[in-house]
Design a binder for these strands. Structure first.
Lengths: 65, 65
DNA sequence: ACTCAATGTAATATATAAATTGCATATGGA
DNA sequence: TCCATATGCAATTTATATATTACATTGAGT
């Protein structure tokens, strides 16, 4: 479940806490998603993407390298 | 949780059962996702997209109208 | 009318996403 | 050095995605 959330969030100058509040989850959930240890729901993926002004593909599609 | 899974699956001439088997879930799960009553996990969204030769954005991004 | 494949749907059970709480650590500024 | 912010991480609980089983409905073909 690798993704581009962390790098995108940092570029947007947001903390995990700020992003979490905006999308309605806890800081821990954002942390685990960024670590790739979580398999988030589509709704949450979309909320994060919109908050970071990205699309689903930009954050989650074929990020394995 | 509206999406383009159903129309894409039909265009690909697959049944719910066939798609479900390919992505490792049950037919009921596919049915509920197509109905928009489910909030699937990212892993499942990706598996479905790959099976239908689409990207996440094509199936799940801004499909509300 | 009958059959069968495909789909809708509902009840209950199970797995796991996410919440909650708490503590540790790193870092930068006063 | 002290303090505050940001992050990592672990244990337990809660909410919900998904499985399982089962039955109903629809539509095409014969």
């Amino acid at each position: 479940m690798k993704n581009n959330v962390k790098i995108t969030r940092i570029k947007a100058s947001m903390t995990q806490e700020q992003l979490a509040r905006k999308v309605g989850v806890t800081r821990q959930t954002i942390g685990l998603i960024e670590k790739g240890e979580y398999n988030p729901t589509l709704q949450l993926c979309i909320a994060i993407a919109k908050e970071l002004n990205k699309t689903l593909d930009e954050l989650y599609w074929e990020v394995e390298l």
